[in-house]
């Protein structure tokens, strides 16, 4: 468990309370402490609340977005107050710290992405800071075919001594995976076609490893893609050892010679990202196309990208697609 300090890093809009850079609160166990004589915005706090218990916990799933998310923005679209979460192993926060938080990492905040990123609400979780304060997960390792995936051995206190400071530790080397931004997905389902064409040389959404769920009256589109979990339930669920990780891309692979089509992997997937092939009944497993996902290449909106959680998404269709289809 961690104690937290939540610091106002930047006010991009106008806050009329006002909250000012450097204002903060601390969370120790079940208690919230606000420095004597200071205050904290009620509305910002109620938005931050769900994040607090989550950030108090050590999360070993390397592809989870929570460990990579260190900033939240207040819900007032005119305010745009940026709050930064700082984690310290429980019991290590001094009783009252009179320092001026936010200073030590001001260089990082100034580089925290173009303003479109926050105002669009595209990704309220910003990019991985260079001086992340949570213990890095174990470096990815290939798991031999048939092996079970292990949680990282390092305990939550492994790097505890270094947390809370600008330790300049490099981010863990997580291979890129499919990242989805439902807010800009146009629902065109090109990803399904590109996937089936890449894998089966036919246009057949039923065999696509990615599927767009749609709510037409509400105008919502949800591409459901494999997240290549750090600890993959599908790999662990397979009784035949047919699922393994690619040594380079870390993508889950299916050995069809071992697979019996029992679909325990499908039942184990917490994201409903595995479906059976309609004709062979074998599970449809996203292999990231060996590192160049066809679905991403055909996504016109940038709703799908191939990257690392917390990375800044590219802005704009044209820039994105031009890069993809050079003259």
């Amino acid at each position: 468990m961690y104690d937290l300090r939540i610091v106002v890093e930047e006010v991009r809009g106008f806050c009329d309370l006002p909250m000012q850079p450097g204002d903060y609160l601390e969370v120790k166990g079940g208690r919230i402490h606000i420095p004597a004589g200071k205050f904290f915005c009620l509305w910002a706090l109620q938005s931050l609340m769900p994040m607090i218990p989550a950030k108090q916990r050590h999360i070993v799933e390397e592809n989870d977005w929570l460990p990579h998310t260190d900033r939240m923005i207040c819900p007032d679209p005119n305010g745009l107050v940026v709050f930064r979460f700082e984690q310290t192993p429980a019991g290590h926060l001094p009783p009252q710290s009179p320092s001026v938080p936010g200073q030590e990492s001001s260089s990082q905040s100034s580089s925290s992405g173009p303003p479109e990123d926050s105002t669009r609400g595209v990704a309220r979780q910003t990019q991985v800071p260079a001086d992340r304060t949570f213990p890095p997960a174990a470096a990815p390792s290939s798991v031999p075919a048939g092996g079970k995936e292990q949680r990282p051995a390092s305990s939550s206190t492994g790097q505890a001594g270094e947390t809370g400071k600008a330790s300049a530790k490099p981010s863990p080397d997580i291979p890129p995976r499919l990242l989805v931004n439902t807010a800009v997905c146009s629902g065109c389902r090109s990803c399904e076609l590109a996937c089936s064409f890449a894998h089966e040389e036919s246009f057949d959404p039923t065999v696509a490893r990615i599927q767009v769920k749609k709510d037409e009256p509400a105008g919502l589109d949800f591409p459901v893609a494999c997240r290549q979990c750090g600890v993959a339930s599908c790999v662990n669920a397979c009784p035949e050892g047919a699922l393994s990780r690619h040594p380079v891309t870390r993508a889950v692979r299916l050995d069809v010679s071992r697979c019996t089509g029992c679909l325990l992997c499908m039942k184990a997937c917490p994201f409903e990202a595995i479906r059976p092939h309609p004709r062979t009944n074998l599970p449809l497993i996203c292999d990231l196309c060996g590192g160049e996902p066809a679905c991403v290449a055909r996504c016109a909106t940038g709703a799908l990208r191939f990257g690392k959680a917390g990375e800044n998404p590219p802005i704009g269709y044209r820039a994105l697609t031009l890069k993809r289809f050079p003259g």
């Binding site: 807010a183 800009v184 997905c185 146009s186 629902g187 065109c188 389902r189 090109s190 076609l193 105008g219 589109d221 055909r298 016109a300 909106t301 697609t321």
Partner: peptide, 19 residues
């Protein structure tokens, strides 16, 4: 406007969802 929408298989999502 809330976002761009597209027909099946389109590279140029010219439709729009509004609220």
């Amino acid at each position: 406007k809330k976002k761009a929408k597209g027909c099946f298989s389109c590279t140029i999502p010219c439709s729009r969802f509004f609220e």
